[in-house]
């Protein structure tokens, strides 16, 4: 299936967007490390949905804007984007997000009536007391595979493919943008936590059982805050949708009512 790439203008510069498949639209928001490739997980979702995946402002091939310094700012850009793309009809848009993209997805669902369903894969955005997180800011890129994957070898293969070619320099932009958004407080926002009850869309939480960045207690904690279904994925770390693409895709599709 073709991956269709387009550039969309926004108040915060140009956003690079990719689409695949047909059907009810599903907006996927990538995580803190960006998304250079087009993973198997999205290909599976695209069997049943029109998958739409923007590079978030400052990440990948989207412009950086001085206006975007917080995930709330990112969310304002996304609110404009779903208007621009004609995706804002009430209860029409399936939304999924990973890590910092899951955080932005919750912010979006707090504010927008367009969201039909919300799937959070190892989402950042909230704090769980007494649970130590893995620090990918102090880790070197060589340490990413062991930190972020249950299977280090799978992680090495993933990051090698992601970093191929010109993307090497984009990784700097991704790290910088993730830092701007998530350094302190570290990957969460108390205001978001206070406003989670505004989310009306049905919500599920998918978590890697071996997540060393946001440990499983974060998954159960977030599911409790959202009163959401929790699906634990064995043999999966922080990149559960990469390591267990089929299981994660089935969990996602089981929930979007494809």
């Amino acid at each position: 299936m073709d991956i269709r790439e387009e550039q969309v203008s926004s108040e915060c510069g140009t956003l690079r967007l990719r689409r695949q498949g047909q059907g009810a639209p599903l907006l996927f928001l990538h995580g803190s490390q960006g998304m250079n490739g087009w993973p198997d997980y999205l290909q599976r979702l695209a069997q049943h949905h029109e998958v739409i995946a923007p590079d978030l402002p400052g990440f990948g091939r989207s412009d950086t804007s001085q206006r975007v310094g917080t995930v709330s700012d990112t969310t304002r850009v996304l609110l404009d984007l779903i208007d621009t793309l004609g995706l804002a009809a009430p209860g029409s848009l399936h939304l999924a997000g990973h890590c910092i993209g899951g955080w932005a997805a919750m912010e979006l669902a707090v504010r927008s009536t367009a969201i039909a369903s919300l799937t959070l894969v190892n989402a950042a955005g909230v704090h769980v007391d007494g649970v130590h997180k893995g620090d990918f800011f102090i880790a070197s890129p060589e340490e990413y595979p062991a930190l972020m994957f249950a299977d280090e070898a799978a992680g090495r293969a993933y990051f090698a493919a992601e970093a191929a070619g010109e993307f090497e320099s984009i990784m700097f932009r991704n790290r910088l943008m993730a830092t701007r958004l998530g350094w302190s407080p570290r990957l969460f926002d108390r205001a978001l936590m206070r406003w989670l009850p505004r989310i009306k869309a049905r919500t599920q939480v998918i978590w890697g059982a071996d997540n060393r960045v946001l440990p499983p207690a974060y998954g159960s904690g977030l599911a409790a805050m959202l009163k959401a279904t929790l699906t634990s994925i064995p043999k999966a770390g922080h990149f559960a949708q990469i390591e267990q693409a089929q299981i994660c895709a089935e969990a996602t599709l089981g929930f979007t009512g494809r």
């Binding site: 800011f137 880790a139 700097f172 790290r175 993730a178 830092t179």
Partner: peptide, 16 residues
């Protein structure tokens, strides 16, 4: 380590 000495943004993008 490099990551301790130069966290993202500590140096300008070009310098980094």
């Amino acid at each position: 380590s490099f990551e301790m000495l130069f966290p993202p943004g500590y140096l300008s993008l070009e310098t980094a």
